[in-house]
Design a protein around this nucleic acid. Structure first.
Length: 882
RNA sequence: GGAGGCAUAGCUCAGCUGGUUAGAGCGCAUGCUUCACACGCAUGAGGUCACAGGUUCGAGUCCUGUUGUCUCCACCA
């Protein structure tokens, strides 16, 4: 049956249909075989506001490749997808829409109405990212898709909050936190990015209250002086011993504040005197606690000077800075201004400067939680791939500070705490409280704040499986999960928090392996970003080159933890590869009979080329499986790529042509059977990486079973390894390569066939390889010789380790050139042999190197001795001719 | 201040626990309308694996140092 198939693979015609087939077939669900082991991956939930970008493509490709591999290996494979409510990002987006379309703020609507709008928005756009992930071929169980704001997740969040509170691991307190005046919320330490910015160091004169002199303080944030409540010097600083305990008059504010002595002040820096602003600096806050300094907050939530700021009231922090500096100068208080670069904290969402501000917030006490999270990684219960990220994680976990979890937003999990107006007691409860648990008053109000988005995603590996219901089927079957795949940029945000949460609430580390990948950058190595406009849309690449090509781009030439640059050319190359595979399959299909089956013939019918390709396949299966098990996906896929293109297409297919176009039905059948068998095995190996094209082809060749996605992963077979025949085949291949090489050098066109004479100690090998020599080495006749030809005039001599090949080329042969070439080859061979002999005569090498290595070297040496002998003969013959 | 990555062909990168005459893609050169494929075939050019030491029978691979480069964490006002 000759099938009509397009010469070019058209992914657009295939992907949607295949994906639908998989989904309808229910293949994304765990097969649920009772005797199979579960294998679980939870997907890092993309933001509900998200648009698919290359980072997602990378993430999804790796996870999908792993889950497909495990599924084919017979695991009960589950990949749980989901979406994150993304507190700040989503709220900002909806607020923006509200402002543009209706000219309203969230306050105009009120909390309840506003949240309705957000849910509407989620209803409308929340599925977009999911649809986009499907375009990547993601084989998640979509029926299990979770959302961090849905009922089970909310229940989990509530349970965790209350239980941590009951254990004393959540508390509310006034601390210096990172405040984003633009997003108008507190941030955790992890959400602050430090950026080097040029700034100034202002030196300001603070007169002593008793008129006996002055001190000069240095600051990078002069506007905070409005909240100064002290000046600090080092207790060992001899310059200032006499003023400790005295007071200074705070310029502009005209208020007396004390001078205290504390180790915090460094004698070497600036003047050695530091102004203390306990409400706006974490260190000053600490000093303030030790010395009972007043805490005066002078900036409001929007970063403007508040009513305590006197004449500066209402000014933006940076305007106030300018004005204060001007006023200081006018008043004669400004001593000097130095340039001073320093690190400024910025908001990871909006990138505006973060303001340290004292504020009453909720915190998770981290030290006790970190303990177990450190242990599981230290003990290897959870491993990072690559291993070096263990150190990053440990370093963070060992120095972690309490986690500020409250956010002044509306979109998120509202904190389940009620404050009593009568007795001040805080009631924290799993059910919504109606009365104060302490005094019974009904005069209680709920905390307005919501929880950090990451508080809910920290529970992701178990909340998605039904926790806190520990009897939930999924939880029992699939928790703990197996591998977590994510980028190194969210180890702190997410991975570490999942680990301590899992340990604390489920008693188990949530996964045994964390596979870390790098960032996808543009072709100049820059981060892809909206502001630079250098992002490449994965969907556009899929539309143009196909999903499989994009996925291949994501895994080839890439190793765990390392960034990669995105080159469209690479996607194109992978598209070409897909096409190569497509055409190889076309070749097979065109030669298949109607009733063809995919089964190997009786092994006795196998010919040398069949044995060679089957042996190669065997090695491939072994190696690829091993690489996959070690998460070396890039190495694995490279090997498959090489096999498909080089072994199968460039060699094996060519080797089968003589048989396929011959009249010998039996030999033809053997060839087509092996072609089909090897193709099937290749498709299986390649399927996790290129799911669409492999499934499409597989469905068109003889197969058993419903779909490739659930077909068995190949296993190497000892009965299909043929070492001897493999070597023999390669002898012939070496001859073919050598002949092609020579002909090209001599500019002989392929159309010009020539006779070939072979002198070899393995005549049966070359006799068997006659067809290959004819077809692939442009020989019109092949004859075996028993001795060197009498007349070498006009004869090209080609030497390999196993044979000498003679081709009459008449006028084309230049004896002098031949001599030069043979001499060159001889020298190279001798040089190499002498290095081998040096090694082999080294007693230490023989005694200490493993036997296999020594034997391999011996074999190589023997081969080169043969080659040298052959070359020497040829040389002598040529010299006689010259 | 602390920690880590990277440095291999013109470009982008693989190279797993040390053992091939160091690989791939793209690019380059030459030839090819060969009955699957020009999104192709064949052949080729191109690398003292940053530098200097060390360990080893053997180092691109391990150790130390140097240089360049990138990143993360912490932070002195």
């Amino acid at each position: 049956m000759a099938r009509e198939l397009p010469k070019i693979y058209e992914p657009q015609q295939v992907e949607e249909r295949i994906y639908k087939m998989w989904e309808e077939g229910g293949y994304f669900k765990p097969a649920g075989q009772p005797d199979s082991k579960p294998f679980t991956i939870v997907m890092p939930p993309p933001n509900v506001t998200g648009q698919l970008h290359m980072g997602h493509a990378m993430d999804a490709t790796l996870q999908d490749t792993l889950i497909r591999f495990k599924r084919m290996q017979g695991y009960d494979a589950l990949w749980v997808p989901g979406v994150d409510h993304a507190g700040i990002a989503t709220q900002i987006k909806v607020e923006e829409e509200l402002r543009v379309k209706e000219g309203l703020t969230r306050y105009d609507l009120g909390r309840e109405k506003f949240l309705e709008r957000v849910w509407d928005w989620k209803q409308k756009y929340g599925n977009r990212i999911v649809e986009q992930q499907k375009k990547l071929g993601a084989s998640c169980d979509w029926d299990r898709a979770a959302f961090t704001m849905d009922e089970t997740c909310s229940k989990a969040v509530r349970e965790v909050f209350v239980s941590l509170y009951e254990k004393g691991l959540i508390y509310k307190g006034s601390r210096i936190i990172n405040w984003c005046p633009n997003c108008v919320t507190a941030l955790s330490d992890a959400e602050v990015e430090y950026v080097d910015k040029p700034g100034h160091l202002w030196h300001i004169r603070y007169p002593l209250a008793d008129g006996s002199g002055e001190v000069v303080v240095a600051t990078t944030r002069p506007e905070t002086m409005l909240g100064d409540t002290g000046v600090c010097v080092n207790p060992n600083d001899e310059r200032y011993q006499h003023i400790i305990g005295k007071k200074v008059i705070l310029p502009l504010v005209n208020k007396e504040i004390p001078i205290v002595a504390d180790d915090y002040a460094e004698m070497e820096f600036g003047t050695g005197c530091v102004k203390m602003t306990p409400a706006h600096d974490p260190n000053d806050f600490e000093v303030g606690l030790r010395h009972n300094l007043e805490v005066i907050r002078v900036l409001d939530d929007n970063g403007k000077v508040n009513e305590l700021g006197g004449k500066y009231y209402g000014m933006d922090r940076y305007d106030a800075r300018k004005q204060i500096v001007a006023d200081l100068e006018a008043g004669g208080y400004l001593v000097k201004i130095d340039d001073h670069a320093h690190n400024v904290g910025t908001c990871y969402r909006c990138h505006k400067d973060v303001e340290p501000i004292i504020s009453a917030q909720w915190f998770v006490k981290m030290k006790p939680l970190a303990k177990e999270a450190i242990r599981v990684v230290k003990d290897g219960e959870t491993k990072f791939v690559p291993e070096r990220f263990t150190k990053t994680y440990m370093n963070w976990m060992e120095n972690v500070r309490d986690w500020c979890i409250s956010r002044q937003l509306w979109w998120g999990h509202q904190i389940p705490a009620w404050t009593c107006a009568d007795c001040g007691h805080i009631t924290v409860s799993r059910e919504d409280a109606t009365v104060c648990e302490h005094c019974g008053s009904q005069n209680i109000t709920r905390e307005e704040d919501v929880l950090d988005t990451w508080f809910s995603s920290a529970l992701w590996p178990f909340e998605t499986l039904g926790w806190p219901n520990t009897d939930a089927e999924d939880y029992k079957r699939f928790y703990p999960t197996d591998v977590l795949v994510t980028g190194y940029d969210i180890i702190f945000f997410w991975v570490s928090r999942m680990i301590f949460s899992g340990c604390e609430h489920t008693g188990k580390a949530p996964f045994h392996t964390v596979l870390i990948h790098g960032l996808v950058r543009d072709n100049q190595g820059r981060k892809m970003s909206k502001s630079l406009g250098n992002g490449i849309d994965p969907l556009e690449m899929i539309g143009k080159y196909g999903c499989d090509a994009l996925r291949m781009n994501m895994v080839t030439g890439n190793s765990p933890g390392n960034d990669m640059r995105f080159y469209v050319e690479r996607t194109e190359a992978m598209r070409n590869f897909a096409n190569k595979l497509w055409n190889a399959s076309r070749y097979v299909m065109m030669n298949l009979s109607e009733d063809a089956k995919n089964e190997l013939p009786d092994l006795s019918k196998l010919e040398i080329a069949d044995k060679w390709v089957l042996s190669k396949l065997n090695t491939l299966i072994e190696e690829v499986t091993e690489n996959m098990d070690k998460y070396e996906l890039g190495v694995a896929v490279q090997k498959i790529y090489d096999f498909v293109w080089d072994i199968y297409c460039d060699w094996y297919i060519e080797m089968t042509k003589a048989r396929l176009f011959s009249d010998d039905a039996d030999r033809k059948q053997t060839a087509i059977s092996v072609l089909t068998y090897v193709l099937d095995q290749m498709l299986r190996l390649l399927h996790p990486f290129m799911p669409f094209i492999t499934e499409e082809i597989w469905q068109s060749i003889p197969h058993e079973g419903e779909a490739l996605i659930v077909a068995q992963w190949p296993v190497a077979r000892t009965d299909l390894a043929f070492k001897t025949e493999c070597d023999q085949m390669e002898s012939v291949m070496a001859a073919i390569r050598a002949i092609r090489n020579r002909r090209t050098e001599m500019n002989v066109p392929p159309s010009k066939k020539a006779a070939l004479f072979v002198l070899t100690s393995k005549p049966q090998v070359f006799t068997e390889g006659e067809g290959f020599l004819q077809r692939l080495a442009y020989a019109d006749t092949v004859s075996m010789l028993t001795a060197e030809p009498e007349n070498l005039d006009g004869m090209v001599t080609i030497t390999t380790a196993d044979a000498k090949l003679y081709i009459p080329m008449g006028q084309l042969v230049d004896v002098a050139k031949e001599l030069a070439r043979i001499t060159k080859e001889l020298e190279a061979a001798k040089k190499f042999l002498s290095s081998l002999e040096g090694k082999l005569s080294n007693e230490k090498f023989i005694s200490r190197a493993p036997e296999a290595v020594v034997n391999a070297e011996r074999e190589k040496a023997a081969k080169h001795r043969d080659l040298i002998a052959q070359l020497e003969q040829s040389l002598a013959a040529m010299q006689r001719l010259a």
